[in-house]
Write a protein that binds this DNA or RNA. Structure first.
Lengths: 196, 196
DNA sequence: GAATAAAAACCGACTAGTCGGTTTGTTTTT
DNA sequence: AAAAACAAACCGACTAGTCGGTTTTTATTC
């Protein structure tokens, strides 16, 4: 059994999440993480070949969470999927508040490396594509009015990212979750076909 | 005359802009900037008390540019102001591509300092307030349909920030400028009152 | 099931280098 | 001559990553 090994690995990961999200990617040193996880530097570099590799491992976990959520909503109707998304708003805003800064920080410096850029842009494009076809499906199944799926997708994603970024810049500046819900309602009203 | 002194200062500033935007705030070291500006470290710290202070000075310059633009559009009608904004899209996207990464990077780590946070959030709130009252003015003068100015402002700003952020993440992923124009047209169509 | 060998996991001092900032002394301007 | 501007060596704190050696786990043999 590799019980101990797995425990060490997961201790590293949870300490990393904790410190990256509170202090940021750069400000949280490998030594800090080792200290918090109560393991040695040797153990750290036995499990991860670099600090960057550790972050990429974390990223992978998050992307899988998203993929799972998408998979689960596979056979729902499009409006149902959207409703499910709105219901996830509280969780999303909370998670983004913790996770988005470290991701942005990491990405801003790591994206200069072509390997990293490719690895992070691929899922982004994948999700965009998925979202576009979701809207197309909504139009085809008659739930939505005729819109350009591509453009609408970019619009909704922009809105979401902008809202998230603003909630990051000025958390107390507005009731972001409420604002998000209101905007969603507004958009759904113009998007949903009125059944006479 | 303090000709030479001013020249040194402006050499530092232009080198800083150049290096911060190409390499990022952290990756561009003070030594790099001095070397590029062909001045010594002593000169650097004679003009700016820290690397952070230098960045704040740059920020101040940009904020003034924005303030000037706002001032200039003071006595235009609201739709005219919006048209002026759309016309600035090419410039905005180009500038954001260079400037936004370094600003985000700086902000993500500096915002943990309360002084910095206050200094950067104040203009953000100021602009939001201005934008909200701009929309209110549009409604009042009869150009726009009845909307909640606060919510609409948040929506438009979200859209803008999301678009900018996406164009940063995946510059080649879409024709962002065109997308921005189309989305603007779409929003203006729902916002503008149809004069019979 | 004990003995043993091999492999995996782990430790922590150490390296080599970076970077923001300081200090001391010199030149230029006023 | 006084003050401002500048040059360049220097400092100290910090950090990602390495490496030789140790402990623990696993596989193998008897």
């Amino acid at each position: 059994m590799q019980q101990r090994s797995e425990e060490t690995r997961s201790k590293i990961i949870s300490s990393a999440i904790k410190l990256f999200s509170t202090r940021g990617f750069n400000a949280a040193s490998v030594d800090d993480i080792c200290k918090d996880a109560e393991i040695s530097k040797g153990a750290f570099y036995h499990h991860f070949e670099s600090k960057q590799a550790l972050f990429l491992a974390l990223l992978d976990g998050w992307l899988q969470t998203i993929d799972n959520a998408i998979e689960l909503s596979k056979d729902k109707t499009v409006p149902e999927t959207f409703i499910q998304m709105t219901e996830a708003f509280p969780y999303i805003f909370a998670t983004a508040g913790e996770g988005l800064p470290m991701f942005l920080e990491f990405w801003l410096q790591a994206s200069r490396d072509d390997k990293i850029w490719q690895a992070s842009i691929a899922p982004y494009r994948r999700y965009h594509k998925h979202f576009t076809s979701l809207i197309k499906k909504g139009v085809d199944e008659g739930s939505f009015v005729q819109v350009d799926p591509e453009l609408t997708a970019r619009m909704i994603v922009s809105m979401a990212m902008g809202l998230l970024l603003q909630s990051l810049l000025d958390p107390e500046g507005a009731k972001w979750e409420k604002t998000a819900r209101e905007i969603t309602t507004m958009m759904m009203n113009t998007l949903l076909r009125k059944e006479a």
